[in-house]
């Protein structure tokens, strides 16, 4: 099963729509609650990252009998130092975003924690791409 969703940069009102839709589908597929929880946490954080940092993003979700693979690609400033961005507590979020309770530097670490395999690549000035893979047979 292949799904795709668009996310708008700055669009916090709709951040979470894709997570909610994917959660509904995984429930229908009788995926375990533990795995759904992991996927939803990782995807929600990724959606918020696009809203907070990028100008636009695209999410592709592929569900097979073995694996849930999520790809999030955004157009935006990118990340110059990925190692630094992966550190808990590090954030470049704006004051406004922090006031909403985001931008605590927990997003990317939360995504990694809730992925069986997590890949991140970025080109500064162009955008960032994440791959979140969770296996069904854990």
């Amino acid at each position: 099963m292949e799904l795709s969703y668009d996310i708008g940069g700055g669009d916090f009102v709709n951040a979470g729509r894709a997570s909610s839709a994917v959660k509904g589908i995984l429930k229908q597929l009788n995926i375990s609650a533990v795995l759904i929880k992991r996927v939803v946490i990782a995807l929600y954080e990724a959606e918020v990252n696009v809203a907070a940092h990028a100008s636009a993003g695209k999410i592709s979700v592929s569900i097979t009998k073995d694996v849930i693979r999520i790809n999030i690609r955004d157009k935006g400033p990118g990340i110059a130092d990925i190692e630094l961005a992966m550190q808990e507590g590090y954030s470049t979020a704006s004051k406004e975003v922090r006031e909403m309770g985001f931008g605590a530097g927990m997003g990317l670490p939360n995504i990694r924690k809730n992925s069986d395999t997590f890949n991140i690549s970025s080109t500064p000035g162009e955008g960032t791409e994440l791959e979140i893979i969770n296996r069904l047979s854990n």
């Binding site: 946490i41 929600y44 918020v48 309770g101 985001f102 605590a104 997003g107 939360n110």
Partner: peptide, 9 residues
């Protein structure tokens, strides 16, 4: 918590 990622996680 007032940190949304904390609640999410």
């Amino acid at each position: 918590s007032d940190l949304l990622s904390d609640v999410m996680g």
